[in-house]
């Protein structure tokens, strides 16, 4: 039993509501990502989970037990910090077994567990090194091993990959994810990188200004964003959003323009870059840039005051300055009201 339940959790710093009445649950042995822009309260939320920060109000349950007022060490969680929090004067072995020593685990058992954890993360040959003599990725592994050796079933991670280069980050993403599944860990993982969130999570909790904007699977967030904020936060390039007020509805696909004309409460429409294609009629845009990625090209264009991104396969014959018409299947349109909230369409 290691599921997590968070109820109406709030944390106020002075007059800043860092976390504002947040509730969600993390099923046992699943991977939940807290995603959001910088300063939205992800770290604060995570720190309240493990007890390094106290809650202003609300409750935290771990394994069905109310741990809100329990001290950090007794909550049954381990944590991987952004800067790894390795003890610089201790070698890898001592770093891994720091907690075991604190808990007075007998020496033989300690050595055995350390060895096992080091093997899991592929550090066996480096046990005598000091952290200063390790690469970023290796330090990251030490932090992971320390968390594994604690044998807690809940593991919290605060931007653990943000200090690594892009290639290593992709590798470690896979590794952390497979580790979580192999060991059956319940993981809560903080990041502001939506690629990490999409590729690792069972559940994404998207936060903005201390509040939950949307919670769901990566696919739900991508295909059914609850608001313009979700729509634009998830996906690269972000979803194209057009204000109804600033657009000529006759340029939209025919069926869409009928819907828009008949429903005055629609405020914005959105469409993903991959659903747009160049057509003979449709929305007139002026290209101002293209980004070639090999398999595809992302075209950047202006429609009136809005910027539109769309994807084309390979390398299309499109140059900056070109005037094109674009269109998209009507059912791929996301419709939002004047308050930028998704409208029930179906």
């Amino acid at each position: 039993m290691s599921g997590i339940e968070i109820k109406n959790l709030t944390r106020v710093f002075g007059d800043v509501k860092a976390v504002d009445n947040v509730s969600f649950s993390v099923p046992e042995k699943t991977f939940t990502v807290l995603l959001g822009p910088s300063g939205c309260g992800k770290s604060t939320l995570l720190r309240m989970l493990c007890g390094l920060e106290s809650a202003t109000s609300g409750q935290v349950f771990i394994g069905g037990k109310d741990v809100t007022s329990l001290e950090a060490a007794r909550r049954g969680v381990s944590m991987v910090f952004q800067s790894y929090a390795l003890f610089p004067h201790l070698d890898v072995k001592e770093n891994i077994q720091f907690g075991l020593k604190v808990r007075r685990v007998p020496k033989a058992e300690r050595a055995e567990k350390t060895q096992a954890a080091a093997e899991i993360v592929g550090l066996s040959g480096l046990l005598d090194r000091k952290p200063a003599n390790l690469s970023g990725g290796q330090r990251q592994r030490v932090a992971l091993a320390r968390s594994i050796v604690s044998e807690q079933s809940v593991c919290l991670m605060d931007e653990p990959l943000s200090n690594l280069d892009a290639k290593l980050r992709a590798e470690m993403r896979d590794e952390i994810r497979s580790l979580q599944q192999r060991l059956g860990l319940t993981v809560v993982y903080v990041t502001h990188d939506q690629v990490e969130a999409m590729s690792m999570a069972d559940q994404i909790v998207l936060l903005d200004a201390g509040k939950i904007v949307q919670a769901g699977t990566p696919a739900e967030l991508y295909t059914r964003p609850e608001s313009v904020f979700s729509a634009r936060f998830v996906g690269i390039p972000p979803m194209n959003i057009l204000s109804i007020e600033m657009s000529d509805h006759d340029d939209f696909p025919a069926a869409l323009s009928k819907t828009v004309n008949s429903n005055p409460s629609i405020g914005f429409i959105g469409v993903r870059p991959e659903h747009i294609s160049v057509t003979s009629t449709g929305l007139p845009v002026t290209v101002f840039g293209t980004d070639y990625f090999g398999g595809e090209t992302v075209v950047r264009a202006h429609y009136r005051d809005s910027t539109i991104y769309f994807r084309c396969a390979d390398q299309p014959d499109i140059k900056p300055g070109d005037e094109l018409n674009i269109s998209w299947p009507e059912k791929q349109t996301h419709i939002f009201d004047q308050n930028k909230i998704r409208m029930a369409s179906d």
Binding site: M79, F81, F98, G99, V102
Partner: peptide
């Protein structure tokens, strides 16, 4: 200090 605190130090 936080890492140590979590370990019960």
């Amino acid at each position: 200090a936080e890492a140590a605190e979590l370990e019960g130090s």
